[in-house]
Nucleic acid binder design. Structure first.
Lengths: 229, 229
DNA sequence: CCGTATTTGTCCGTATGTATG
DNA sequence: ACATACATACGGACAAATACG
């Protein structure tokens, strides 16, 4: 009754607020980003339904959302397949992220609070240790958190969503192992430049620093570039 | 067997290629953009299903896609509601479109073919007549087509999608009557500047011209601006 | 505050289409 | 090329939640 019941009721309260398709969507998304579901692989409705102990309807609705998000492709009467992003599509997305980063850099330099900046500094400091230690996995997670925190400082909700969305799409291109241990230090040096420009409230420098960071990320991720170096 | 049969089989072939949820999604989207479904209004599953002569499953899947596209909001156990975009959200989106237009302007100046440019010129010319004639409705349609054609010239599929997507979202803010008859002439003058810069292959000027056009559109659409004039 | 009607959430059955031997 | 097995597409039914009187 006591603790177990409380835990149970609280988890039920959570289930009440979040719809089942949304929970399933998050689960499938996680499976895709974790690589459990590889690019091009088929997403079996019945198998997932039985695995999760639900009917097929919530699975189907979740897949439609993922389709719109660009994480899966749905072929009528054939099934749902994890989207595979080719080089050209990745370059297109990086091109867009470069422009969004340019915008974001300026917004952050204008709108970030001193608390924001202090926190960003801390994160860069911690990542510096991870980079020099060569802890790729932990740096990877911290990198995501840093960019999420950075995006928040734009105070533009739609822009934050676009960074998140395009980042997930790019995961379908970066076939794991997206960074060399030495790339970590370089990447974090760019993080530091961004934060420095923001702290100085230097809009122009912040725009360029953030844009360069994204486009350098493109170069790091895309090994064989067909056009436009 | 003759013509009627052929027509029938061809329409069936179309139904074969496009999924029912996708067709319904387009239909609902059209109803929203046409104003048949007003912002904030509830989308009744059963009513739509009976109206379209289908079950509720395809309706629900279509609504999930529209939710991800940002055209509707789904509240658990309450229903689907046409999204209402407030002033701040509209400003956020215009901010993003400004950055995307800046990117697009440069890409188009680099990548547009001479045929593209000739066609863009023609469209601007036709719109000029419509603008001076004060034909708001026809100008409105031509304006959409012009921007779609312009986006195509970027040769960036994802960027094209983003222009389309954010444009639909903005429709939920612009409560009809988005342009004064005199605004048409001004707007098309900006179109002409964009095409001129592209034809001259002047990347910098094309970037600025396109960005200005979008941000001027923001000013035209947003009457009461709370911050950042 | 309660009962009723309406609407959503989910599951499942059947039909249709696809892949495989 | 055909038949079988399998997966998806859609509709209908039941349960749960909400809205209304």
């Amino acid at each position: 009754m006591s603790i177990a019941t409380l835990d149970n009721s609280s988890s039920l309260a959570f289930l009440r607020s979040a719809s089942l398709p949304s929970l399933i969507e998050g689960k499938i998304e996680q499976m895709i980003l974790n690589g459990e579901l590889a690019a091009g692989e088929r997403v079996n409705e019945l198998a997932l339904a039985q695995q999760m102990g639900v009917g097929r309807s919530p699975i189907r609705e979740a897949c439609r959302k993922l389709e719109q998000a660009g994480l899966v492709e749905v072929i009528k009467n054939r099934g749902v397949f994890v989207r595979s992003v080719d080089v050209q599509q990745a370059l297109d997305i990086y091109e867009i992220r470069g422009a969004l980063a340019e915008l974001a850099g300026g917004l952050i330099a204008e709108r970030a609070t001193d608390e924001d900046i202090a926190e960003l500094r801390d994160m860069v400091g911690q990542m510096d240790a991870l980079a020099h230690a060569g802890d790729v996995d932990e740096y990877y997670r911290s990198n995501i958190a840093f960019h999420a925190r950075l995006a928040q400082c734009t105070r533009n909700a739609r822009l934050i969503e676009m960074f998140q969305g395009t980042d997930k799409e790019l995961h379908l291109y970066r076939h794991r192992s997206l960074m060399q241990p030495e790339g970590l230090v370089v990447s974090n040096k760019e993080h530091n430049e961004i934060v420095q420009a923001i702290a100085a409230r230097d809009i122009k420098r912040a725009r360029q620093a953030f844009k360069r960071h994204v486009l350098n990320g493109k170069t790091r991720a895309v090994s064989a570039i067909p056009k436009e170096g």
